[in-house]
Each structure stands twice: as structure tokens, then as C-alpha cells.
Design a protein around this nucleic acid. Structure first.
Lengths: 193, 193
DNA sequence: GTCTATACGGAGATAGAC
DNA sequence: GTCTATCTCCGTATAGAC
């Protein structure tokens, strides 16, 4: 089997795992669920991934790393505003995940599972680095909003940006009456622009 | 056994469950863990609660309802600012829970468990009602910040307030280098004041 | 009301044939 | 590499004595 075929099969397994985890949540999803969703067998899954935990880590890494890439892409046409960055984050997650359930599962698991914790720590770290860079270059074009310099301003806004993104995904996943556009409008009202 | 004794025993069980859920996460916590933590037996637990799910719901309800009470208390000395409200929310959770892990577990579970979903829906609904009331009265004292009236302004800010609170708890629970004061300072910079 | 002991089901993971 | 079949453990919940 060529490397390409091997990676294709791994991608197939990850995609099935993503669907299964999203539908039932990480903990309630059994390997049998992934088996059923993928059309493969338990043996096949374990031939490619060490187990459920490794599979979850792989899926999480795939999803989160795309957001960093998207923000860097968007920086091509001039520095994106904080609101634009937030829109990219939430829009990308919406496209990949339909709802935010998988990420909420990931965050919960990261507070209680060492391995997942480390994976999240690393991948959120790089995403935050990309965010920081984007905000810095934007503040550099708006010195009126950054009296202490763009770096300090970006560093200060960073946790809030992350929080607003997490809030969006959380509320979309858990509240029946969540209104995405309303949330982004509210965020726009508080973010610097 | 008097009602007071009965409630005391139930509180004892809830407290043990809270500790156990916080330490290992909801799903990984077994009834045996709660048994060990409480010093009681399985039979005793089931004599007071229908099972793990009901116990989790009871704990969640207890914790969240306190925040509503605290915000209403604070409204006694004049309408609290958005930042004050956020500080009450995060400070209260810090006091009750040490870290935000239990709530992150709750949110994750609410996206995947019908019963927990309904409980969260209701209790977050009332908390949101309290928040809405507090923001309205505050905006009423600051008509310069509410061109469309205090009600509209409060309604718009509501999801952001919730998001910032969730972001605080999430990041505290999952990020090694989280700085609570820095987060609140950053929130203060974006919130109306 | 509370204990001890246990029934019952389901989970993750592996063995061995193909 | 993949399948079928299965092993082993652990979790929830209950039964029955006190």
C-alpha cells in the first residue's frame, strides 16, 4: 500500500471519527460507533491509530490547525481587523463542524486527560501565535488605538478574542435560541474598529 | 429522619459529587468515586438521587443559581457596571469551584445529553434574565451609551457578557499560562464603562 | 436509611484467519 | 491491511440483610 493510500485511509477514519464524536460526544462514542460510521472494522482502525484517545487528538489537531492557515491566508489582502479575525474563526469552525459540539468536547476533555491536554496546549498555542501576529499588524495601522504600541495592544486583546470565539462556539452548541449574526454584531460593537 | 437531616445528607452527597466531578470529570467519575469521596455507600447515594445524571444536574443547578443571587444582591448598592457583573460571575465561580473544570464538563455534557441539556437551558435562562435586568438598569443610568434605549443595549451586550464569562472559565480550566487579572483587564478595555 | 454483595451490560482492545 | 470473534475489565444499578 502506497503512502498516499495509507493517508487516504487515515483521513477516512478521522472523518468518520469526527462525525461520530460530534453526534454522541467523545466519551459516549464507542469504537464500535466509529467502526459503523467508517464502514471498516475494529482491526482496521487499530491498525492506523492506537485507540480512541489518539483518534480524538488527531481529529482535533486537524480541525484547529486549519484555522491558523485561514487567518494567515486572509492576511494577504492587508491586516484583517479583530472582527474579521473573529469571523474567520467562527466561520471556519461552522464550515468544518456544523456546530461547535466537537470543540466543546475537546475543551472538556483537555481539562481532565493529560494527553489531550498537551495536544490542545500545543495547537492552541500556535493558533494564538497566528492571532497575535494578525492583531499586531492591524494595530500597527491604527496607532490611535494602541497608545502603548501595537504589541501591547495585541497582547491585551488576545484573551478576549479567544474568549469571544469560545463563547460563540459554546453558545451555539448549547443554547436553543442562539443567533450567530446577533452574537457577531454584539462582538462588533465591543471590538476596536 | 427529619427534613433538615435529609437535606443535610443530600448536601453532603452533592458536595462529594462536586469534588469527584471536578477531580476526574463527569464521565470518568464513577459512582464508586462519589461513594469514596462521601464516605457513604452506593445504597445511600441511590437512596437520595436517581443516579449519576441526576446528581450532576443537582450540583450544576446549585452552583449556577448562586451566581444569579449574587448579582441581584450586588444590585442593591446601585446598578453594577458590566465589568462588575463579569467580576461577580467569575469571582463567584472561582470561590465555589476553585477552577472552571466542572462547568466546562457541564457545557460539554449539555450538548450531548438531553436531560442535562434541559437543566442547563433552564438555569442559564434564569441567570441570563438576571443579567439582562442588571444591564438594563445600568444602561438606563448611561443613556449616552444606549442610543436605542437601555433594553436594546442590554439585549445586544448579553451574549458578549456570557461569552466573556465562558471564555474566562474555559481558559482558566484549559490553559497552563492563564492570567485571570490580565483577562479581566482586557475585558474591561472592551466593555462599555 | 444505609450497608455489603452482586447481577448485568457494554466498553476498549486483541488474536488469529485470510 | 483488514476482518470476525472474543477476552477482560469496569461501570451502573439493584437485592436483600440489618
Amino acid at each position: 500500500m502506497t503512502d498516499a493510500h495509507r493517508e487516504a485511509r487515515r483521513a477516512q477514519i478521522r472523518a468518520a471519527a469526527l462525525r461520530a464524536f460530534t453526534a454522541k460526544g467523545y466519551q459516549r462514542t464507542s469504537i464500535s460507533d466509529v467502526v459503523a460510521e467508517s464502514g471498516l472494522s475494529a482491526g482496521a482502525i487499530y491498525g492506523h491509530y492506537d485507540g480512541k484517545q489518539a483518534l480524538f487528538a488527531a481529529v482535533a489537531e486537524e480541525v484547529l490547525s486549519r484555522r491558523g492557515a485561514e487567518i494567515e491566508d486572509a492576511s494577504g489582502g492587508g491586516p484583517p481587523s479583530p472582527l474579521t479575525v473573529l469571523t474567520i474563526l467562527t466561520g471556519g469552525m461552522t464550515r468544518d463542524l456544523e456546530d461547535g459540539r466537537l470543540l466543546v468536547q475537546l475543551w472538556a476533555e483537555s481539562t481532565v486527560d493529560e494527553v489531550i491536554h498537551d495536544v490542545v496546549q500545543e495547537v492552541v498555542g500556535t493558533l494564538r501565535g497566528v492571532l497575535r501576529g494578525a492583531l499586531r499588524t492591524w494595530y500597527a495601522t491604527r496607532p490611535d488605538l494602541a497608545p502603548d504600541g501595537p504589541d501591547a495592544a495585541a497582547e491585551l486583546l488576545l484573551p478576549v478574542m479567544l474568549g469571544l470565539g469560545q463563547g460563540f462556539l459554546m453558545q451555539r452548541a448549547m443554547l436553543d435560541d442562539f443567533d450567530p449574526e446577533r452574537y457577531l454584531a454584539a462582538a462588533a460593537a465591543v471590538l476596536p474598529a
